[in-house]
Each structure stands twice: as structure tokens, then as C-alpha cells.
Computed example of a mutant assay.
Amino acid sequence: MSNRFRSDPRLTARMTVTLFLLGLLYVLFAAALIALLKSWVLVVVVAGLLLGAQYWYSDRVALYALRGRIVEAEEYPRLHGVVDRLCAVADVPKPRVAVADMDMPNAFATGRNADHAVVCVTTGLLRRLETDELEGVLAHELSHVAHRDVAVMTIASFLGVLAGLVVRFAFYSHMFGGRRDQNTAVVFSVVMGVAAAVYVLSFLLIRVLSRYRELAADRAGALLTGRPSVLASALTKVTGDMARIPTRDLRTSQAFNAFYFTPALGGRPHLARFFATHPPLEQRLDQLGRISVELGEAPAAGPGKAD
């Protein structure tokens, strides 16, 4: 990379392996659909249109779904000031800056590449964090952009989206398609079985990659600012305040957990963590503690002042 975010060979290797496995799964899935549906044109066209739409419009969809809007420096000078400083230090293009009007304290990055990236924070996050803590969170999000995490996760999640749509299509076609012969019923049953298996496998692969990319973003953000303890402070504060947000409000944002700084739902049983998009808070804090020792970080000074 030409920017000053440290390269992460382990992250690159995991992304490559995950995409390879998902690609192999996609080829097998497409081959099964073509064999069963007897129409490779339909499969290729539908898959291509879905992937293109998901890749090109991921930023707009995310902002719309989470009520985010692009804001200018005159409206949010503190937020823009932090982004400007981090982009200058990291030597990366400045993304568009957005704010989502919701009390849930969180942030996310979206967009297919650095030139079309958007970094969005919620008003709840801006109210709760001091300027230095906000800097740590935004360094984490800019790391996602620099490492092309958003594009990789968008492509990786496509297979699961396609498989899920196939399952629903097959189910409703079978339920409401009228009278069908036995062969047609068998074909649709096989399609549903294959699609369901593909969805489960892609789901698990994406979750493994997502948990590691969050640790990688924590590490890169902490090294960029040189203040791991500040990022740890922001993590602790945001996670603690998340428990005070009504569950019904958190569930409306749960679909975007993979892109969030912290998941919209916490306190899950141990088994559920295996399916989580983020590593446990304790693991993230332990890593930041080790980085702090490696850097010889001095104790944090007083909190930064908000504008």
C-alpha cells in the first residue's frame, strides 16, 4: 500500500483464502443451479446483476438504511477536523463524511474503494466520545478503507445473499406456484437444499474473516495514532453504553453488524460468539494492551475537548 497504514500480510492471506473458498463455493453453486434449472443464461445474468448492484451501490444502501447523510465541515467541524488529521497522517484520500441521527453509539465505513468511501458516525457516538477517543474510532474505520475491507466483505457476502434469495424464490414458487408434478417438486427441493448449504458455509466463512478484520483494524488504527489506550477507552465506553440502548432499536441495525465498529447487540452466550461478526471485547482489549506495551505508551493525558 502507498499509504502509511501498516500492511498486514496475515489479513491479506486470510482475505485471499476466504475469497478463494467462497469463489469455489460460488462455482459449485452456479454449476448446480445450471444443471437443475437448465438455464445458464438466467443464472449468470441474475447473479451478475445482483453482484453489480451490491458492489456499486453498497455505500448508498448502507447510508439509506441507517439514515446517514453526508455532512460538510461547517456543520460538524470537530468530526471533519479529526478525519482531516488522520488522512494527512496516513496519507490517504479523505472519504466523504456522514452522520446518522441515532442514539446508538457506533461508526462504520462503506464504499467500494478509497475514492468512493464514506465514513459515518452516529450522533450518539459524537455525544459520548472525547476528541481523542473519536480519533481512535475513526482511525479504525479508515483502516478498513485502506485495507479494502469494505469491497472484500461486499463481494464475500454476495454469495450468501444470492443463496438466500434462491431459497426464498424456490420456497415461494413451490408454495404458491400452483399444481406441480413430482419431478418439479424434486428439483425445487434439491435447489433449496443446495442453496441452504451454500448459505450456511458462506455465512461461517464470512464470520471468521469479519472477526479477524476487526482485530486487524484495531491494530492498524492503534499503530497509526500511537495511542492504543485511547481506542481501548472508546471500545469500553461504547460497549458499555450499548447495553443501555433499547433492544428493539439495536435490532433494526443488526443486519449491518459486520460493518460496525462494535456489534449492535452484545452480551451473547458463548456459543453464539462463534457466529459473531466481531471478536469478544476482552480479546480486542487484550490486543490493544499488548500494543500499548510494545509502543511504550505513556499513560493517557486528560480527555480531549469537544468543539
Rank of each mutant, 00 (worst) to 15 (best):
D8G: 10
P9Y: 00
T12E: 15
A13D: 10
L19V: 14
F20V: 14
L21P: 01
L25E: 12
L28H: 13
F29R: 05
A31M: 13
A32D: 11
A32H: 11
K38P: 11
L50Y: 00
W56Q: 09
W56F: 14
S58G: 12
R67A: 10
V83T: 02
P95T: 09
A98R: 06
V99N: 09
A100K: 05
N106G: 07
R112Q: 12
N113R: 04
A117S: 10
L125G: 12
E130L: 11
H140G: 01
E141C: 03
L142P: 06
S143I: 03
H144S: 06
H144M: 07
H144N: 07
D149N: 13
S157M: 11
G160R: 10
G164A: 06
R168C: 09
F169C: 15
A170D: 03
Y172V: 15
S173C: 15
S173E: 04
F176I: 05
F176D: 01
R179T: 02
Q182M: 15
V191R: 07
M192F: 14
G193M: 04
G193Y: 12
Y199K: 15
L201K: 05
F203R: 08
F203N: 09
F203E: 04
L205D: 06
R207M: 02
S210H: 06
R211L: 08
A220K: 00
A220R: 00
A222P: 02
L223I: 08
S229C: 01
A234Y: 00
V238E: 01
M242A: 14
P246E: 02
P246T: 03
R251L: 13
F256W: 10
H270D: 10
A272I: 05
P279Q: 10
L288H: 00
L288R: 01
